[in-house]
């Protein structure tokens, strides 16, 4: 199903009036079911004990590759680096053309044009972080300008960061309106809203912010920037999945999930896919609805893929370093 524009979604939604005032939004978010941390983490860990072998593993590895937002977000990024990474995203394993391309390249706004050109015609999307990534500490007009730049340069997807300070201070409506404003300037680009879960401290906050972002029109909810100590974890990603599942039940609108940062091995990626499979089901098992924000993960998936194909363990010299 296509992502609907936020206006129509919220107009039809039974939740339309929860954003009528700061007080109403607070009452709604604080009325969501609480999260028991131990139970949540235990469930996430239990899903991590699934044993995915042979054909299921091959399927999962290819699916995971196709869900990667191949990311470079360094101050030292150059056009050359972005071109190289783009080439890798389009053709992850030159020795095996059957390898699927990644979902998207994820870059800073000033690299969007470079990436756009490099992936042209491949079907690989270009995602851009925006809104004064990663801290988000800039005035709203600056953050909107940042977003407009990226969209104008050809970004298919925008990964925005929320104002964590405003959220923690309880200014929920302000955060909501900022997301709406960014959503408005995204045009047809899909909007991923980054919470920086590691800075929100509690699971209750993570559930609340997920609903807040979805109410504001997020197409994706995303755990983190990859720039802080705690990024995606099985537990906080599971919590995001529960939120999008419940949101679709309430509103009919489907929202995607993107864990980002800290997912480096095939084993981990497969566990996340198991979590998608058993929490959200097949409707979310595609790059349209689930992404991995990662860089080094791809090479590990490629090595595992080679191992499955040849029966022998591969090594870092047999995948490309970019």
């Amino acid at each position: 199903m296509p992502s609907s524009p936020p206006q129509s979604a919220s107009a039809a939604s039974p939740l339309a009036d929860v954003t009528a005032s700061d007080a109403a939004l607070r009452r709604f978010l604080h009325g969501l079911p609480g999260v028991d941390a131990v139970g949540l983490e235990a469930r996430a860990a239990a899903l991590g004990t699934r044993s995915i072998k042979t054909t299921a593993k091959a399927y999962a590895i290819d699916l995971a590759i196709s869900m990667i937002d191949l990311t470079t977000l360094e101050g030292a990024d150059t056009p050359g680096k972005v071109r190289a990474l783009s080439a890798k995203g389009v053709t992850p394993d030159p020795t095996d053309r059957g390898t699927p391309p990644v979902a998207a390249l994820c870059v800073y706004p000033d690299m969007v044009a470079e990436a756009r050109a490099a992936v042209a015609g491949s079907g690989v999307k270009v995602a851009s972080v925006a809104t004064a990534f990663p801290a988000g500490r800039a005035a709203l007009p600056v953050r909107l300008a940042d977003t407009r730049d990226a969209v104008a340069a050809g970004a298919d997807e925008i990964d925005m960061v929320i104002d964590r300070g405003a959220f923690l201070a309880g200014r929920y409506l302000e955060v909501y309106e900022q997301i709406r404003a960014v959503r408005d300037v995204c045009g047809t680009a899909r909007l991923k809203v980054i919470f920086e879960t590691g800075e929100l401290s509690t699971y209750d906050n993570i559930r609340r912010v997920s609903w807040l972002a979805m109410l504001a029109g997020a197409d994706f909810v995303k755990t983190s920037t990859g720039k802080v100590a705690v990024n995606a974890t099985p537990a906080n990603t599971l919590l995001l999945m529960e939120a999008v599942r419940d949101f679709r039940r309430e509103t009919g609108r489907q929202v995607g999930v993107k864990p980002a940062g800290g997912i480096r091995t095939s084993k981990d990626a497969v566990k996340y896919l198991v979590m998608v499979n058993e929490t959200l089901g097949a409707d979310w098992l595609s790059a349209r609805w689930f992404r991995f924000g990662a860089s080094s993960l791809l090479n590990d998936l490629l090595m595992q893929r080679q191992k499955l194909r040849t029966g022998n363990y591969s090594g870092p010299d047999y995948v490309t370093v970019d």
Binding site: D36, A37, G48, T202, N236, K267
Partner: peptide
């Protein structure tokens, strides 16, 4: 449990 959502990785 812990106070925050630190959550261990896989």
């Amino acid at each position: 449990g812990s106070l925050g959502a630190s959550g261990s990785a896989y």
